[in-house]
Design a protein around this nucleic acid. Structure first.
Length: 565
RNA sequence: CGGGGCGUAGCGCAGCCUGGUAGCGCACCUGCUUUGGGAGCAGGGGGUCGGAGGUUCGAAUCCUCUCGCCCCGACCA
């Protein structure tokens, strides 16, 4: 059917008048639109359109082009802004952080919705980020003596019942397979929400002697937890992670392992993701189900909320007792192994997005960025010579950068204006962009745009590669420093309950707490904030009293209160 | 599970009140002109209106049932 209406030839159109071609002539007498659809509403629409255009231009809400287009449509101003923001732009971070995040993960091509609630597809650009996270972490795991292995995804339900705390903690979020091969199973199988149980079962088999210890293993896998509410990367039904599981002959060694892996996470977060973190211990209420001690790294997002970005657990002999991980020690005495587990998930991607992103979109930390540098060649399509010259130079630069170990993307796509590409790569957070066109070639320079800077720098082609390589290193430092400064501005010690209530509205509050779970719960009830952690290198609490109950501190240091994801 | 909203083209929406067999923007395809901050013109393709019943000559529109999704509250890396 011809789209004859598109040009909107007549203002007072009727359905019949818009139709041409065979269908229209096919004799079906079409009812003329109701009178009001053709009379004053047009005037109203026109008025609204003109008013919208003026308003939008005045407030610089939209580029002229969009306004003109909108005027043609005759959309109402408010709706127009919303729709345009949805389709082309991005809700500014400062306007609505949550909306900003939700839009960005789709518009930066990180995720897409899967058919099952809360199960997201990670698209290539998002997965590339995950691959770099994996690669760096895996290297660090290997360097600390760990080996990778793979355990099955299906776990007999009975395994969960063996550790009382563990089953209580995970039962509500288990997904369970009850049928297979066309029959109901004798024993239902849980899809792993974490693998302590099945690994415990096997460790019991593998460990006989103190000579078999320690066991230092890790697996990269997916897990499923049936959460009530889901958000891309932050809380999803299925997610990717690594889970390390180790077994040791004594408590001291196991605790040292727990701490070592926490430090690995912290180092990774700060030196690779440029995300500053607070290392600390979880309170009893926030502890992993079945653990003796849970250590965490907590990062501050740009809305002042905390995100637990990695955890390391000392499990004591809880799982050893539940699964019979015993060994004969040097004195031929039978003993239970001390186990640990530690995990970091695709939630880290959420941490990166919310630690660094701004109104224009993502800002990728260079060491993990899928593309560290993007080069946009600029040339008129009808000027083959210029195109070829620019193309050759761009290829040369890209090749040199690759030789220097830089992940570089040449965006030579046809049919898109340079401006469109600039916006796209900024939204996707590429740290550095190189623009090269005929004018630059003539001047012997290239324009370099830094994702954190407002202006562009003309750099001589002769020193371009060195400039860029150095720029990436500097970028990481500036990004990390910016995040540190942001956190410093939003984190402070508080000395009264009122101060705490106010502080957690915008950031982290460092406060003395008595450690009473009831008090913690009451504070959460009133403020939505919880104790994120008891910092490992915190402010000594001696001499101060709990800001909530006035009782003595329950911990050696002041604790971190914040709202959390 | 409680409260609120929504299912119409790939995406965002209008049309529904007042029934007459579907439209707008973006995206997509073709051609030409373009390309230094989201290009223009022209032509074009694409929808069993979430599903099932019902009312009616006729249902995206009215009625009944149903499925699904999103947002806000109680759980979590």
């Amino acid at each position: 059917m011809p789209n004859a209406g598109r040009a909107r030839p007549a203002r007072c159109r009727t359905r019949t008048s818009r139709r041409t071609g065979p269908r229209a002539s096919a004799a079906r007498p079409r009812r003329v639109r109701r009178a009001w659809g053709c009379g004053w509403p047009w005037l109203r629409r026109s008025y609204a359109a003109r008013r919208a255009a003026a308003w939008l231009v005045r407030d610089r809400r939209l580029p002229d082009r969009d306004v003109r287009r909108a005027a043609r449509v005759g959309a109402a101003p408010g709706r127009l802004v919303r729709d345009m923001a949805k389709q082309q732009g991005l809700t500014p971070q400062s306007t609505d952080f949550s909306a900003w995040y939700n839009e960005l993960v789709y518009k930066a091509d990180l995720v897409d919705l899967g058919p099952v609630r809360g199960a997201f597809v990670i698209r290539p650009y998002g997965y590339a980020l995950w691959e770099h996270i994996q690669r760096e972490l895996d290297t660090m795991f290997k360097a600390t003596g760990h080996e990778n292995l793979s355990f099955p995804m299906l776990i007999p339900m009975s395994y969960f019942q063996r550790e009382a705390q563990h089953v209580e903690g995970f039962s509500p979020e288990l997904a369970v397979v009850t049928h297979a091969g066309g029959q109901e199973l004798d024993e239902p199988l849980a899809i792993r929400p974490t693998s302590e149980t099945i690994i415990g079962e096997l460790y019991a088999k593998w460990v006989q002697s103190y000579r078999d210890l320690p066991l230092l293993y890790n697996q990269w896998c997916n897990v499923v937890r049936w959460e009530m509410r889901t958000r891309p990367f932050l809380r999803t039904t299925e997610f990717l992670w690594q889970e390390g599981h180790t077994a040791h002959a004594d408590e001291e060694e196991a605790r040292a392992e727990t701490r070592q892996m926490l430090d690995v996470y912290a180092t990774f977060a700060e030196q690779f993701a440029a995300v500053p973190v607070i290392r600390g211990e979880k309170t009893e209420g926030e502890r992993f189900a079945g653990a003796v001690q849970t250590l965490t790294i907590e990062a501050m997002m740009r809305d002042g909320k905390a995100l637990q970005s990695g955890t390391s657990h000392y499990l004591g002999t809880n799982f050893a007792k539940a699964f019979g991980i015993t060994f004969n020690d040097v004195h031929n005495q039978q003993a239970f192994a001390h186990t640990t587990s530690w995990g970091l998930s695709t939630r880290m991607i959420g941490a990166i997005i919310m630690s660094h992103g701004d109104d224009a979109g993502l800002v990728m930390p260079p060491k993990l960025a899928p593309h560290q540098i993007v080069i946009v060649p600029i040339a008129r399509g009808n000027d083959e010579d210029a195109k070829a010259l620019v193309g050759a130079e761009v290829d040369r630069i890209a090749a040199e950068l690759r030789t220097a170990g830089v992940r570089v993307k040449v965006d030579d796509r046809d049919g898109m204006s340079p401006g469109w590409k600039f916006n796209e790569w900024e939204r996707k957070g590429v740290p550095l962009r190189v623009e090269l066109g005929p004018k630059d070639l003539a001047a012997g320079t290239a324009l370099v745009k830094d994702r954190l800077a407002d202006d562009k720098t003309a750099v001589p082609l002769s020193g371009l590669v060195e400039f860029l390589v150095e720029g990436l290193g500097g970028f990481h430092e500036r990004l990390f420093q910016r995040a540190l400064d942001f956190r410093a501005a939003r984190m402070r010690e508080v000395h009264s309950y009122d101060e705490l209530v106010e502080q957690v509205e915008s950031g982290f509050a460092i406060a003395t707490h008595c450690g009473d779970p009831a008090s913690e719960a009451a504070i959460q009830e009133a403020t939505k904030a919880t104790v994120r952690c008891i910092p490992l290198d915190g402010v000594p609490a001696e001499g101060s009293v709990c800001v909530h109950t006035g009782r003595p501190s329950g911990y050696p240091v002041k604790v971190v209160f914040a709202k959390a994801y």
